[in-house]
Design a protein around this nucleic acid. Structure first.
Lengths: 117, 117
DNA sequence: CGTCTATATAAGTCCGTACTTATCAATGGA
DNA sequence: TCCATTGATAAGTACGGACTTATATAGACG
């Protein structure tokens, strides 16, 4: 399942928002989601599985609890895909600052190491 | 249809990538997409309709041609949603630079105008 | 006016996926 | 050891959406 398909579901987006605030046990996530969306515990568990399988979330066991947290990698890929469109809304001078902040330095370093005649 | 659902389809993502390079007539988009995905002209037209209806693309007529271009608004909303996760991969000092570039100035202005006792 | 090209719409099919209820597995504590 | 709690899995249903072919609309041009 592609990253954007994962984010296409409002329940999954909300789960990620909850996890963005910090690691949380499945039960706590389930409670919030059930309150907001009125779906069953298995439904939430299935969404958590999708988030695990697609790399958006990681789990660790603690007793009978399952503690979920965000894995940012796929979100970062989404962020990278958006790059090609930022030119449409980012004023140019500020775009430069953003590029610097985003690690153009790393790219420049790679370029230097790669190419010189 | 939610922005992330729109972006969930690989054909629509590719169309947006093509339009990111500049305004293009439907026929040109259709030709590229058919070459890459092997789907029919109506299928591409339907995707273009979704992009129109969801605000990702705008059209203007020129004779019998329909010229499509990116409307960045929904992409910018996606970008804004990602903000809450950038803390996971953006080093703090650079995050500051990014925030400045992203228009915290506008927000600060609004804050000033809004609140003071 | 007739026809060719460019694009959109109509109608129907099919598949994926987001649910449901029922049940399983594993830990903790009386 | 037995029961309660926490969470995942199984199996089945239903609905949305991404296609298909066929057809409509509308400008260009002889």
């Amino acid at each position: 399942m592609h990253a954007f398909d994962v984010l296409g579901d409002p329940v999954r987006r909300r789960i990620l928002e909850l996890l963005a605030e910090g690691e949380r046990p499945s039960g706590e996530v389930t409670e919030s989601i059930q309150a907001e969306f009125g779906i069953s515990q298995p439904a939430v568990s299935q969404h958590l599985k999708v988030l695990r399988d697609s790399g958006f979330a990681e789990v660790r066991a603690e007793g009978t609890r399952r503690l979920y947290r965000v894995d940012p990698a796929p979100l970062q890929q989404v962020d990278a895909w958006l790059e090609q469109f930022r030119v449409f809304w980012t004023p140019r001078l500020e775009a430069l600052a953003t590029e610097v902040a985003r690690g153009k330095r790393a790219r420049a370093k790679a370029d230097n190491e790669g190419g010189g005649p």
